[in-house]
Design a protein around this nucleic acid. Structure first.
Length: 283
DNA sequence: ATGGTAGAGCATCTA
């Protein structure tokens, strides 16, 4: 099963590229963030193209800002828009989380974690309320035995290796101990960072490059788009990569999709490996 | 010190 997460930075602006990307990468499940459209417009943009390709979809968005979606051709049920106890921003709930259960029983989240903006900004405090509230719901699901993958734009670089120059971030959000502590707390629930598991530090696997000043071309990026999976899902990990192709050319998002392949069955259940006849009896 | 770019929508705000 191929699972991807992509902050598209406007579903409207990305519409042609998004459909081309589905055809090229063939994800079974795609988690999208920053659609910046309402659900009616999302349907107008994509319902035909998605249905023809066998994808079910669910969207949570109210236009202009935020907006998240799930696409799946391997089941999509028990949909939740937002989550119980989700904090509001300036008195209103935002559209930053959607989750649903695949046919195999895994609950998948598409998350757009608040940015935080700057150290003194109330938006950072909002981010630091939002993440524990999310964690409480994930913890309850895990306690109920539901395999879980939390995917999306976390707006947190887990470690210094995940930003191009830690010195440039000395007074910035995305790297503070408080924000990283929220990722650690999610990992303490058993969630594993799939890309880091496949590509251990210090390998650089950025997923976001600012549009400005040639950041992509000089590879000054950040790894803030994550897939965090509970143990039985993480143990199926077969491959993980960042689709840099999608960040190139005309009209890209400032984020690249992050893609993982999961084996159908837990890798411990594949049985004994039998060598092919050409190798038997040698040595 | 601010700029650099892109996307929202039409003055700025967000990232």
């Amino acid at each position: 099963m191929r699972l991807a997460t992509w902050n598209v930075n406007s579903a409207r602006a990305r519409a042609p590229r998004l459909v081309d990307w589905l055809d090229r990468v063939q994800p079974d499940v795609a988690c999208l963030q920053e659609t910046k459209v309402g659900t009616e417009e999302f349907a107008e943009l994509f319902d035909g193209d998605l249905t023809r390709r066998g994808y079910a979809w669910e969207h949570h968005g109210d236009g202009r800002w935020n907006g998240v979606a799930l696409l799946s051709r391997v089941g999509l049920s028990q949909v939740r828009r937002g989550f119980a106890g989700e904090p509001a921003w300036e008195g209103a709930l935002e559209t930053r989380a959607i989750s649903a259960v695949l046919a195999e029983g895994t609950r998948v989240w598409s998350l757009y974690v608040p940015n935080g903006r700057s150290i003194e900004d109330p938006h950072l405090a909002y981010k630091l309320r939002w993440l524990p509230a999310l964690r409480a719901v994930v913890e309850a699901d895990l306690a109920a035995g539901v395999p879980t993958v939390a995917c999306g734009d976390f707006n947190i670089a887990p470690a210094d290796v995940d930003v191009w120059d830690p010195a440039d971030f000395a007074a910035s959000t995305h790297v503070t101990p408080a924000e990283r502590g929220e990722l650690t707390a999610l990992e303490q629930l058993g969630l594993q960072d799939l890309v880091r598991r496949r590509w251990p530090a210090p390998q650089r696997v950025y997923s976001y490059w600012d549009y400005r000043a040639g950041m992509f071309h000089t590879d000054k990026g950040m790894r803030i788009d994550l897939l965090l999976a509970s143990p039985t899902v993480a143990d199926r990990l077969a491959a993980a990569w960042v689709d840099r192709q999608a960040r190139k050319g005309t009209g890209p998002s400032d984020h690249a999709p992050v893609v993982v392949d999961l084996d159908t069955a837990p890798s411990g259940d594949i049985g004994p490996v039998v060598p092919p006849p050409s190798l038997r009896g040698r040595r």
